[in-house]
Design a protein around this nucleic acid. Sequence first.
DNA 1: TTGTAGGCGTTATCAT
DNA 2: ATGATAACGCCTACAA
Lengths: 366, 366
Amino acid sequence: MAEKSAGSAANVAHVTLTRALALGSRQPSIKDIARLARVSHPTVSRALQNSPLVSAETAARIRKIAEEQGYRASAVARGLVTRRTRTVGLIVTSVDDPFASEVACGVEEVASDRGYAVLLANSHADPERERRVVQELAERRVDGLVVTSSRVGALYLPLLKNLDVPIVLVNDQYPGEFVHSVTIANQEGMRAATDHLIGLGHRRIAYLGDSNGYRSDTERLAGFQEALADAGIDFERELAVEGDGRPEATMEAMNRLLRLKRPPTAVCCYNDMTALSVIRAVRAHGLRVPADVSVTGFDDLFFAAYLAPALTTVRHPMRRMGQMAMENLFKLMSGQESIAQIKVGAELIVRESTGKVPKRGRHHGQ
Amino acid sequence: MAEKSAGSAANVAHVTLTRALALGSRQPSIKDIARLARVSHPTVSRALQNSPLVSAETAARIRKIAEEQGYRASAVARGLVTRRTRTVGLIVTSVDDPFASEVACGVEEVASDRGYAVLLANSHADPERERRVVQELAERRVDGLVVTSSRVGALYLPLLKNLDVPIVLVNDQYPGEFVHSVTIANQEGMRAATDHLIGLGHRRIAYLGDSNGYRSDTERLAGFQEALADAGIDFERELAVEGDGRPEATMEAMNRLLRLKRPPTAVCCYNDMTALSVIRAVRAHGLRVPADVSVTGFDDLFFAAYLAPALTTVRHPMRRMGQMAMENLFKLMSGQESIAQIKVGAELIVRESTGKVPKRGRHHGQ
DNA sequence: TTGTAGGCGTTATCAT
DNA sequence: ATGATAACGCCTACAA
């Protein structure tokens, strides 16, 4: 009756032996277990699901045999009959993007807590590819879908019924609005950053954005302009420049700003990655941050606090957004009441990359 | 945090209409398509797989109808009969770990290139949890498994037959050796870093490692000691300290080093994340990097080049490791000849965080 | 409490 | 070139 407790190598020999008794090489099926336990397979199914419809003794015996055989019910067979795979798809621009991976962490966390698995796919910020990936995940019959930084966004609306898969967007980048999404207070966040710079005496403040037409960029720029307007500062077009996501392009954009007749004394960057390159370009010009140029980021990625100078930036709860998206997706999947739009706050974190405006333009021979 | 309510949903009329012709609400099955095309369902199957066994006209007709109905063959039904899910499991310590996410990128890349999906799961570096996750993925009948920074490692060996799932480890952390793995030249890499410091005149060099018993830490420490020995420098136990992965613990360990009667003039860190905290601790003591203390990292995470001073570190091809692991897994899955052990090189990248040894101990009143 | 029968949506194996 | 039929491994009736 009392078997040796698992874990020892000797015990493994035993398992292999009984396995050999049962069948050839393939994994045991529910019928194999049923045969060994001298019951019907539905009884095995019930026993393994702790159904009250099976007597304690037989249930115990069945479980023991299943254990010995290393039996694990096939999720694919179960999925076929239950029509639910307990799997969600997660589409990110790229897993190695710090923002995406934080969100992914949040999603995985609450999904796995509830016994759901996560199918991961990269869109590489390519709408074409994003669509294809959605189709592939639909083919795998995921129960739901989380898409971060989607560039398809509202264009999913026509497909939604056809697909029969609930979708929640995180940080939707499409101009139009999607049904279910978790978004960032982009405008408010960038406004706070700009206000901070204005408060430090800056008047010539640049915005270094992104040329890919992301909604977050549009909204952040709007917050920037709003702050200027409210402070009575004219928005000068030459101070709004764009990179394209590549460090080189960002540095080049920053170089253009620094070559201006009247260069800015501060730069609001679209995000932290942009700020990284901006700081680099500033230094390459022999200038200092923040003594000559103040710089702000957006996102508060984990390394922001470790930079020298530590980056003043706008924080939003990336991981929490992933959690919320997944929690909301669960509601959608179970047909419960769900929240359509969730907007998370963005908080200014003042560190060392911003400082008082220099007394006078000390660089470029001014 | 604020919550707004719903967005609009228009523009689905057409799709809904054509769907309505076919059936109720559930997705169309192969039989639905067969009925509409007035053929048997195996013919539909053949047509959609571009089998030469079906005439061009009927194939075209079937494809057209399938397209119209938005039909996508269920991967779960297919998986049941073919016994292959075209899905691999990927277990990482945590997706938001920069090393893990780079590897994940490589894995996803080659998997998706070959039409495989990736099931992602976090182990949180917990052997218990890692085991559980493997079982769950096995239940989902993944065709193969990639595990990064596994703490179970060779302990998988007994399960391997039972599981019937090929496994490739990346950066295996278990002391014993597993069958298939992609490993880093940890010892050689750390040796190069240490040699570099010795070449700069440093003699009191510390190693700041990790207390979790990772194999990579053991190997890196060995490389460190080897370099010292070959240079005729005694290894002093007080200069080998450990953190536990948390920034606070790392800073505390570094503080202990700095409070030593004869503090080190250089520190070799277990990895870049450790170096981040070390630099912070150095600064908190009012000292400079590298003028007072030189610091080296390991990994060359993307931000290393952006730090000020830019981090001298040891680079290894993280993404490439993910690719290689997945490529090797494909060989394993198809029963081809596979390489058991793959070891990738580690390359010293000299940047700005290391410099000549200070003329004399200038700090701590020395 | 347990067993029998049927079906989930495919592909595979036979026929025709 | 196409169709009928049987798996695949499980769950859910319904019957005993």
